[in-house]
Deep mutational scan, measured.
Amino acid sequence: GSPGIQSFLPPGWEMRIAPNGRPFFIDHNTKTTTWEDPRLK
Rank of each mutant, 00 (worst) to 15 (best):
I5G: 15
L9M: 10
E14A: 05
I26G: 00
T34R: 02
F25R: 00
K41Y: 15
T30V: 03
P19F: 09
G1Y: 10
R22T: 10
T30Y: 05
P10R: 07
T32A: 07
I17F: 13
P38C: 06
W13R: 00
T33E: 09
T33V: 14
R22P: 02
L9C: 03
W13T: 00
E14Q: 05
E14R: 01
D37K: 06
K31T: 08
G1D: 12
H28C: 08
P11H: 11
G4F: 10
F8E: 15
E14M: 02
K31L: 11
N20F: 03
T33I: 13
G21Q: 04
D37V: 05
T33K: 11
G1I: 12
S2D: 14
P19D: 10
I17L: 12
T34K: 03
H28E: 04
T32W: 09
G12H: 06
Q6P: 12
N29K: 10
R22Y: 08
S2V: 12
N29D: 06
S7Q: 15
A18D: 11
T33L: 12
E14I: 05
I17G: 02
R22L: 12
S2R: 13
T32V: 10
R16Q: 12
A18L: 10
Q6F: 03
T30L: 07
P11D: 10
T33Y: 14
I5C: 14
P19H: 12
T33R: 11
E14S: 08
P3D: 13
P38R: 01
S2N: 12
L9E: 02
F25Q: 00
R39W: 13
L9D: 01
F24D: 00
F8W: 11
N29R: 06
F24P: 00
N20T: 08
L40E: 15
N20Y: 03
R39M: 10
T33C: 04
G21R: 03
R16F: 11
G12L: 03
P11R: 10
H28Y: 09
R39C: 15
F24T: 02
P38N: 01
G12D: 02
P23I: 08
T34W: 05
K31Y: 08
T30D: 05
E36Q: 09
G1W: 10
T33P: 03
N29S: 08
T30N: 11
T32R: 11
L40I: 12
I26F: 09
A18H: 11
A18E: 06
W35G: 02
N29H: 08
D27P: 00
F24Y: 14
L40M: 10
F25G: 00
F8G: 15
W35R: 03
I5V: 14
P23K: 07
G1E: 11
L9H: 01
P19A: 11
K31A: 14
H28P: 05
P10W: 05
P10H: 04
L9V: 02
T32L: 10
W13L: 01
T34C: 14
P38D: 01
H28M: 07
A18F: 05
P38T: 01
T33N: 07
P23Y: 09
N29A: 12
P11F: 09
A18V: 04
E36V: 08
Q6S: 13
R39H: 06
T30K: 08
W13V: 02
P23V: 08
M15N: 01
P23A: 08
R16S: 09
D27N: 09
E36K: 07
K31R: 13
G21K: 06
S2A: 14
G1F: 11
R39Y: 06
D27F: 03
G21H: 06
S2I: 12
T34A: 03
T30C: 05
D27T: 00
N29M: 08
S7N: 14
I17T: 09
M15L: 10
G4D: 14
K31D: 14
L40H: 14
A18W: 04
P38A: 01
E14P: 00
I26T: 04
I5R: 09
L40G: 15
S7A: 14
I26Q: 02
T30P: 00
P3F: 13
N29E: 08
F25T: 00
P11Q: 09
D37R: 06
H28A: 04
P11A: 14
R39T: 15
G12A: 03
K31S: 11
M15I: 11
P10G: 04
R39P: 03
P38H: 01
D27W: 02
T32Q: 11
G4Q: 14
P23D: 02
E14W: 01
N20D: 11
P11K: 12
G21D: 02
T32I: 11
E36T: 07
L40D: 15
K41I: 15
I5Y: 13
N20Q: 03
F25A: 00
T33G: 07
F8Q: 15
F25N: 00
K31G: 14
W35T: 06
L40R: 06
G21Y: 01
W13M: 01
N20A: 02
P3M: 11
R39E: 03
G1K: 10
F8A: 15
E36F: 09
G21W: 01
K41A: 15
M15G: 02
H28S: 07
N29P: 02
K41N: 15
D27L: 02
P23G: 03
M15C: 09
E36W: 09
P10I: 04
L40S: 12
N20W: 06
I26W: 06
K41D: 15
T34N: 02
G21E: 03
N29T: 11
R22N: 07
S2T: 12
W35A: 03
D37A: 07
R16G: 10
L40T: 10
N20I: 02
P38F: 00
G1S: 11
W13A: 00
T30R: 06
M15H: 03
R22A: 10
L40Q: 14
R22W: 08
